[in-house]
């Protein structure tokens, strides 16, 4: 009666970032860029929203990128090939709109490369000129860079410490590209990564009035429109990230509220994590 999902492989990209490949043929057929899944490692686990980062409908596989931060994500990342996810429900959320831009800038911050990659790939496939900015704190945290480069016409790397590419934040090349775009060919910007990074990109593009799409990773329980924990204010209207998003126009979001709300369970998350670390030491 209960449907579980087999894990085909799990690879450590960095000590905290893992790539998990699942045997999920129907999801692989139906997945669209911008959509996400809910995953649970075991019956007592949390329902964790994760972007559908890659899929192969002929092989019937779906790839997730998971960052081990809290208890539930660490439990997911400690699973092994051959084990089964207790729950995997997808595809959820609205697919990326893929507007007819002449040129689009894709900004990937850290693990944001996972949701950015399928969108960049889709734009590239339909002939849009794709300029990608791949940003991370340092070189070790850059992954899928060749994959993203392969679907980009122009590819820029930035690291906070300058260990690879330009030194500094993604907003630096973003600002420069928009300033130099005298012919107004850049129709849109996708910025996906940590909330602070998406907020910064949104503020960078605001003076240029360039359409800027971000993908929110809010608190979510069910992921199917039932709980409203993921609610955000979009241009004065309440929207649910799970069913109306996860992509929204960054210029219409109430960023201070988003940044506050994402910390609302910090205390409990720390409590749970400390317990997990003690038990697994």
């Amino acid at each position: 009666m209960h449907s579980t999902t087999p894990i085909l492989s799990i690879n450590e990209i960095t000590p905290t970032i893992f790539e998990m490949v699942l045997d999920a043929p129907q999801v692989a057929i139906k997945a669209k860029p911008g959509q996400f899944a809910i995953a649970m490692s075991h019956a007592e686990g949390e329902r964790i929203p994760l972007t559908l980062a890659n899929w192969d409908s002929t092989r019937g596989t779906v790839t997730l990128i998971i960052m081990a931060v809290g208890t539930a994500t660490r439990k997911l990342c400690s699973m092994r090939a051959g084990e089964h996810l207790f729950a995997f429900a997808a595809p959820l959320g609205q697919a990326s709109e893929l507007k007819p831009y002449e040129t689009v800038i894709m900004v990937a911050g850290g693990v944001g490369v996972a949701p950015i990659y399928p969108i960049a790939k889709a734009f590239h496939a339909k002939g849009t000129r794709v300029i990608s900015i791949h940003a991370a704190r340092n070189e070790k945290l850059l992954f899928w860079d060749n994959m993203l480069k392969n679907v980009s016409n122009e590819f820029i790397v930035t690291t906070d410490d300058g260990s690879r590419g330009e030194q500094g934040l993604a907003t630096k090349p973003l600002q420069r590209l928009l300033e130099n775009d005298s012919q107004k060919k850049i129709g849109g910007v996708y910025a996906i990564g940590p909330a602070q990074m998406m907020h910064a990109c949104t503020e960078t593009t605001r003076p240029f009035a360039t359409h800027t799409v971000v993908s929110l990773n809010t608190i979510m329980i069910d992921g199917t429109g039932m709980c409203g924990g993921c609610r955000v204010n979009v241009g004065g209207k309440p929207k649910f990230t799970c069913v109306d998003g996860p992509e929204f126009d960054g210029h219409l979001l109430d960023w201070p509220s988003i940044l506050i709300r994402q910390n609302s369970y910090k205390r409990e998350e720390n409590c749970s994590l400390n317990r997990y670390i003690e038990q697994n030491d």
Binding site: E46, R47, I221, M226, C227, R231, I260, N263, S264
Partner: peptide, 18 residues
């Protein structure tokens, strides 16, 4: 949208389902 305000569905789902 303050922290500490939630829908009954969120509250009850956390408790009953999760």
């Amino acid at each position: 949208d303050l922290n500490g305000v939630s829908s009954a569905n969120e509250y009850l789902t956390r408790i009953n389902l999760m």
